[in-house]
Design a binder for these strands. Sequence first.
DNA 1: TTGATAACAAACACTTTGTTCTCTTTTATT
DNA 2: AATAAAAGAGAACAAAGTGTTTGTTATCAA
Lengths: 187, 187
Amino acid sequence: MDRRQQKTRTAIFAAFSALLAAKSYSKITVQEIIDTANVGRTTFYAHFEAKDDLLKALCEELFGHIISSAVDCTHTHGLYSDGNAPESVFCHLLQHLQENENNILELLSCESSELFLRYFKNSLNDLIQNQFVNQNRKNNTDIPQDFLVNHISGSFVEMVLWWIKGRMKQTPAELDRYFQSVIEPIL
Amino acid sequence: MDRRQQKTRTAIFAAFSALLAAKSYSKITVQEIIDTANVGRTTFYAHFEAKDDLLKALCEELFGHIISSAVDCTHTHGLYSDGNAPESVFCHLLQHLQENENNILELLSCESSELFLRYFKNSLNDLIQNQFVNQNRKNNTDIPQDFLVNHISGSFVEMVLWWIKGRMKQTPAELDRYFQSVIEPIL
DNA sequence: TTGATAACAAACACTTTGTTCTCTTTTATT
DNA sequence: AATAAAAGAGAACAAAGTGTTTGTTATCAA
């Protein structure tokens, strides 16, 4: 791909991230984005249809990495299959978040964090769904699998939200233990 | 309070709700609201600072009712204190939602449902927090209460989201049973 | 080197916002 | 019933944002 395209795309992403750290998504204007990115108006609209499009692209780029590395992780271990395995998928995900590649943490701490967590949850849902079909569960056969998958991914995302809002005082391992204590009994 | 104020306030709320049922919050303009409500521009801004303000006011009005009736409920029963009590707080809340006063369901089914569910979760948090201090829990003493409260309110809200997106095929009682099965083990 | 592609700036028609103004209607009080 | 106070209507406004078009310049890949 053309180097120029890459450059502007990166510049726009960077500008957008920086702005998101400072103010809420809904209050960011295209004007601000192109000013910050130092990019022409025409150029912006050549790359993205609108602001929503940019958000979507950013999310895909960010969560794409995290989720795909988690998928690799589930190939060796299950969700929590071998009891106290130090490398549960959830712990892996939390560590990934803490490492803060691409300043993902700033995005998840910003006013619009929920916007991102929705994308995150959708990806998680697929991940967990696949785990369920590969892994035969305990009892609870009268509770729909559908519901359980949603419960787990939903709880995880809500936990991450709680973690971040509380300034991330816990380590990924600690958090993983909390999560396991509320999820393991129903698996 | 002046009847005129009440009338316009109601008209604006009704118009806003109707619009929310049709399109997402971010795409609704003040112009549309005042046209639908048949209210002068000046009047709108005399009542609300901006669109965000209106949303907040609507949420407070809607969830105020639901939560306060749930608070009454917790005075007689605990969260799930007496085992299979048919009137758990959660079941009560779900029934309230299903009754669909003020068309609350349309709001929770609309594109901007998550906006409302955040408000809902905040109110729920207080409710559950209070239950926890009045009620001595099981074991699990090494898991922060803070975390558990967030887990419960978060899971509940995620469940409601799931319920609504799945066109509410389950009855409140069924849903309550699902919820109990994933929450009761950790209480 | 050259043709294609991307970026740019400026201008555009348009919409939305929030405010200000004047005038009319409704309300509560006496 | 009369009246002052409060609320609403309607028009007009500047300011800011949106998305598109046009013509020009810079950069790339082959």
